[in-house]
Design a binder for these strands. Structure first.
Length: 543
RNA sequence: GCCCCUAUAGCUCAGUUGGAUAGAGCACCAAUCUCCUAAAUUGGUUUUGCGCAGGUUCAAGUCCUGUUAGGGGCGCCA
């Protein structure tokens, strides 16, 4: 059904029939310059090493064996150092058109993953304040990656890890208790490492209004519990607004309560990966590629944070997932080898965990950088960003960037340019499609799926690009790179706008052509809609 | 001192995993609605643009070595 794949398969068949080792890495691509064909392959160049022959001779041999009719190819040329260029015949797009119409909402999906399972952990912000822009990036990136993985046939669990056993939560509890006392008019000094945000004060006032002074003798653990719930509820609300939803919330405290944390050291010791030095307990992570061994139990008898993290990952793997993905900020990159070592030490494969690191977000407002401190209570939050530029633009912004690159957001520019944001460009293409389809309905012409009248170069360019959608989805999913999809969608929108301006789609004088062009609009609409859904952006019918 | 990431046009970024003359958008200048949505399109300029120096090969922005600059990380903190 897909021309690229058909050509590739035909080439592989030829290699087999010629008894040539088919373990060769070649590509079939759409050349930038259409004079180099609709499709092209470098197979002859790649074979020069294996066959030790002139690439042009190899190309000639392959072309003479190529079944043109089978692949809807009109003409084949050998060009440059040995590229083989294919020119398609006019009927070649009929199978693609039919395929997209039939698949409709399922267009883009595949069973590549064969039901293997992923657990993707992301955001996992401590419940001690609002989500900042780093979390926004993780949320948009993580959710889009999950959508993509599901789309190509994996089972995906979206997981949020709540660090609710550490010092920071203790500080939160103390802060709430102190604010509560202050709200009741009791003069207490605020803890020096407490959280100063207005939100805590508001929450304390709420407690006063709701419960009076009846909570004053409650233990600190009570304030911890209600504090976590309060903070987590806010985070969930913000994420909901951002269209990100989690299947599982795992609590660090649960790991302790289930005894999983205490089991780790004995388990590792049994395998011989533990030693004692300077009154502390060490884990030999260097055996698995880490640059130094790590302490898991401090000389004062308490655990380091690393230990519950090991327990957490073991718990995830024991739930039966084939692969784990963690999405973390660049300040956690030192964590990668450590965690891989832990996974290996527990008997799992290194390949089963992938840690995706995204770089820092620099926020510019009024010409100067805003620091992302949660403690000051003045940080720019995910919610602030959504309020200013909208959820669609925000989701697109984060999904469209390569996580390996640093991101700079100039808020003033983002607001000012919001009308020129790429996301509107894509949404506008979709809205135009809808509008044309609505107008077409009044004409009483039936659809024509043959596509043989779509001979304008703009139409062919659009069709070729539509044929790439499934590859792009798979590529984006396997590379965990949603930005590849946003780039594709942007190009798709551009090809559509160009086509729209050049070709009069609804032409009462020519109903045959109209019937085919409207189908082209329909399959474009399906593709944009399906693509935007994967990155959590609305496809609007009207703008 | 060691480790990770980044470096492509004035700015923001692509570059199909080593392929043909390295591309978009923004910005600047002009043109296009009595016609399906002008949040669009078509030209033009910025244009001696792959940080620098070597190497690998038919072919390097892409791979290797060295080097420079920016960001991040190197605790018995989380």
């Amino acid at each position: 059904m897909d021309i690229t794949m058909q050509i590739k398969q035909e080439l592989l068949d030829i290699l087999e029939s010629l008894n040539i080792n088919n373990d060769v890495n070649f590509i079939v691509e759409i050349p930038k310059d259409t004079s180099n064909g609709d499709y092209a392959t470098n197979i002859a160049l790649q074979l020069t090493k294996i066959l030790k022959r002139n690439p042009k001779d190899i190309a000639t041999l392959i072309v003479s064996n190529f079944n043109k009719e089978k692949c809807h190819i009109k003409k084949i040329e050998i060009a440059g150092p040995g590229f083989i260029n294919f020119f398609v015949s006019l009927d070649s797009f009929a199978p693609l058109i039919k395929h997209i119409i039939d698949q409709d909402e399922k267009f883009g999906q595949s069973d590549y993953g064969k039901g293997k399972s992923y657990d993707v952990e992301f955001v996992s912000a401590n419940p001690t304040g609002d989500l900042h822009l780093g979390h926004a990036w993780q949320a948009a990136l993580g959710d889009s990656i999950c959508n993509l993985l599901e789309c190509v046939g994996y089972k995906v669990t979206r997981e949020y890890y709540v660090n609710d056993a550490g010092v920071q939560i203790l500080n939160l509890s103390k802060s709430i208790y102190a604010r509560y006392q202050q709200a009741l008019g009791i003069n207490v000094t605020f803890p020096s490492d407490g959280y100063h945000g207005q939100d805590i004060i508001d929450f304390a006032n709420y407690l006063k209004n709701e419960y009076g002074d009846s909570l004053i003798s409650k233990p600190l653990t009570y304030f911890r519990e209600i504090g976590i719930k309060h903070e987590l509820d806010k985070i969930v609300t913000d994420l909901d607004y951002f269209r990100v939803h989690f299947d599982v919330f795992s609590h660090e405290i649960d790991l302790y309560e289930r005894g999983l944390v205490d089991k780790i050291i004995p388990t590792l010791e049994q395998k011989g990966y533990i030693y004692y030095k300077d009154n502390a307990t060490w884990f030999k992570t260097t055996l698995f590629g880490d640059d130094k061994d790590r302490v898991v139990k401090k000389s004062d008898g308490t655990y380091t944070y690393f230990l519950p993290d090991i327990a957490y990952h073991q718990d995830k793997l024991s739930r039966g997932y084939d692969y784990l993905v963690n999405i973390l900020g660049a300040d956690h990159h030192g964590y990668i080898h450590r965690m891989e070592a832990a996974i290996c030490a527990l008997g799992y494969q290194k390949e089963q965990i992938q840690i995706i690191i995204h770089q820092m977000v620099r926020l510019i407002k009024d010409g100067e950088e805003l620091k992302l401190s949660k403690r000051t209570g003045k940080a720019y939050t995910l919610k602030d960003l959504c309020d200013e530029i909208g959820v669609n633009a925000a989701r697109y912004q984060f999904a469209s960037k390569n996580p390996g690159s640093h991101m700079e957001i100039d808020i003033d520019l983002a607001i000012k340019q919001s009308n020129e944001n790429p996301v509107y460009y894509i949404q506008y293409a979709h809205a135009r499609c809808c509008s044309v389809i609505e107008n077409f309905k009044t004409l009483n012409i039936s659809d024509d799926y043959n596509g043989d009248l779509l001979t304008n170069q703009k139409e062919i360019n659009l069709l070729k690009h539509l044929g790439e959608f499934e590859h792009v989805i798979l590529d984006a999913a396997l590379n965990k790179a949603p930005y590849k999809l946003t780039n594709y969608l942007y190009n798709l929108a551009m090809l559509f706008h160009t086509f729209y301006n050049e070709c009069k789609i609804i032409d009462q004088e020519n109903s045959k052509l109209t019937a085919q062009r409207v189908v082209l609009v329909k399959i474009t609409r399906i593709t944009i809609r399906n693509g935007l859904k994967l990155i959590g952006v609305e496809a609007l019918n009207k703008m």
